[in-house]
Amino acid sequence: MNLAQAIAYFLREAVQNLLVGWRVALVAVFSIAVSLLTGGGFVLISGNVARLLDEWTERARLVIYLEEGVTPAEREALEARLAAAPAVETWEEVDSRAAAARLADSFPSLAPLLEEQGSVPLPASVEARVDRRSSRGEEWGLWLSELAALPGVEDVDDDEDWIRQMEGFAGIAGTAGLALGGVLMAAAILTIASVVRLTVYNHREEVATLRLVGATEFFIRGPFYAEGLLQGLLGGTLALGGLLALHGWARATLPGVAGPEGPLGRFLAPQESVALVVLGGLAGLVGAVLSLRRESLGVSETGENPLDI
């Protein structure tokens, strides 16, 4: 029997076994699906958070609010400071009118209020784009303090704290997802191992006959490995389908969150989707390998094993 024939035989037998014992197989498929759905959900969330972080990082700004009566000399001193800082890439001055226009643009409901006030309540500022790779650590913090202490500067605000918090959240979410997914995956692998072991037990007479007529271990074990693999692939596919359905549902009901522009708007990338299904298959295969350790198939030559011929 060549390899292609063997694989076709393994798959045929595995499908037959799954159909015969479909109730038990379903438990294994669902357990794999739940673990991958959980893990996939965390991947989806942390992927979106990472994307948002990238976007925010790309737009990382340093805003220096100026005092109302700032003098041209003070402005020049400030600009000299910015020019001397390697982390600062570009900067522009936003006067109080432009700031008010921006606010009205971002929050149209506040526009009438701003018009009613007459005078402009927003301070002028200097907005700088910074390179985050060079704007971390104590030195940067010190530089910011010095900047804030300059005459004519009212306050300094950078996105660093916010981004750092979000990075922390993304890290925790990713770790928690990995941990939870790992625990659930281990449980799913053990479930598949038990299901395959049960199938082996139900086929013990056939295994004994196969061994008696001269079947190799590869031929005997192949269908059981294929069964684990199929269960895992089915579980992975089910998880992917479930994730897609949940994301679609979230998109429809929470467009602000899961819509195309929302913070959870991006679904798994095609390669991540394929990886989810492949991971299911691998988990199934590992479960089958665990269940078919030498002793369980009665390969011992002592004659004591109930599955031994």
Binding site: M1, N2, Q5, Y9, T209, L210, V213, G214, A215, T216, F219
Partner: peptide, 8 residues
Amino acid sequence: SYLPRILG
């Protein structure tokens, strides 16, 4: 026919 099947 187990053995013939094994033998392909």
